[in-house]
Design a protein around this nucleic acid. Structure first.
Lengths: 224, 224
DNA sequence: TGACATTAGTCACAGGAAGTGACTAATTCG
DNA sequence: CGAATTAGTCACTTCCTGTGACTAATGTCA
């Protein structure tokens, strides 16, 4: 929870925590002290002798969701846009929390699906969008999707997670073929019956040593 | 040039300017006021009512290389590592300058190829490495390579630029095939004779509207 | 109990993209 | 004029991806 000090801080650490709620991404917001229906991205100012990442972890823990499964700096934001703290600069972190993590108690924090995010201070809105863009970028370079799932999961769940992050449907056979080529998961002995239909085998994230050969010249430089 | 104020700033803007020297990447450093052989990444503190990006552009211009052809924020750095300014936080920017830009005058600034970079303050060394990593990441998503070349260039020069950034050799036919599929360049009417051998046609960067369809599930999640 | 719906998992083929070597083209040098 | 050198293209092979159809294992319901 933001420690609202009286003095205006030089900089803040803002943490955008994301999880999956149903088939949508959701972000954790904190109720602002003033105003019932005002919400803010959790933030605090850095303490002496504390690294920025440590501060971000502390802010995430204060939201009582435990340590995030993944945390990465998004960047520094300022440029005249308003922030709850009035600080000149806000350093944003993006964090991932496994789906199913219980919603924090007390009504101070709450998960908002992306389409339901209320109005935020301009700088925090920018923060949030950049954090999402960063996550989507990291998708192809870092096992981000696994951080949204529990330790064991079905391949269908994994595919749905990828579809949520990519924002498009994937073909089952293609997805599994790519997964096999990437040596990212290994099967366990357990199976899960989801009501109707054939039970699914559970897998765990277990990346193997990779062939360093990244082939293909991809000049798929997109828009921009 | 860093304005060395007496008061210790809360944060600084550090600019890592890169160009191509021969077939290697080079970074622009500034001679430190104290000590003949000490060098620093150009930095300054942000001025009131100035955006961070504007400050970064100003620092780049002060190095008398004109406005960089590309500029992007890398992130915020701090975490106890020393910085020439003693500031808590340094926000790093990476910038690209076309090759052949004249080396700044006065002996205050100089280009260093990556293997010749002298010892820097720990935080600035980290800054620099992160800036390089960012550039290499952006390669596939942004037409970074073109920012290192003059407006008109031969396809061999473009290929050599890509090879420098990727750190590996590319096959001529594959490279050109990918380039054609990407609709990134268009030929001009001019040719350049480089001494011996057949003259090469000059091209210019002219991205066309792209099919938005990015195919392929690439789970080439690397190391990390 | 047996047909059907539902979900998991696999296969095989077609089409397209990337790796590669060899080829032609145009110039300089001797 | 011929050799050397660099630019540019072609064609063949191999591999990767899109896709639909198939089998497998469960629950549901008549």
């Amino acid at each position: 929870m933001p420690d609202r000090k009286n003095r205006r801080p030089a900089s803040t650490i803002d943490v955008v925590l994301l999880t999956a709620v149903g088939s949508q991404l959701a972000v954790l917001l904190c109720r602002a002290p003033e105003g019932r229906d005002k919400w803010v991205v959790p933030w605090d100012s850095q303490r002496p002798a504390e690294t920025m990442e440590a501060a971000a972890t502390r802010v995430a823990k204060a939201a009582s969701v435990g340590e995030p499964a993944w945390l990465e700096q998004v960047g520094a934001f300022g440029d005249g846009k308003r922030h709850p703290s009035d600080a000149d600069i806000s350093v944003a972190y993006a964090g991932l929390v496994p789906m199913g993590t219980p919603s924090p108690v007390g009504g101070v924090y709450a998960w908002f699906t992306l389409s339901d995010v209320p109005q935020l201070a301009p700088r925090q809105r920018l923060l949030l969008d950049s954090a999402l863009a960063t996550i989507r970028l990291r998708m192809d370079q870092s096992p981000v999707a696994f951080r949204l799932l529990p330790q064991m999961f079905t391949l269908t769940e994994l595919q749905q997670t990828y579809e949520m992050l990519l924002g498009k449907r994937l073909h089952k056979a293609s997805f599994r073929r790519a997964l096999q080529a990437a040596w990212l998961v290994e099967p366990t002995d357990e199976w899960r019956s989801e009501g109707r239909g054939r039970p699914a085998q559970l897998y765990r994230y277990a990346p193997r040593k990779r062939r360093p050969a990244q082939r293909g010249i991809r000049l798929d430089l997109l828009s921009s």
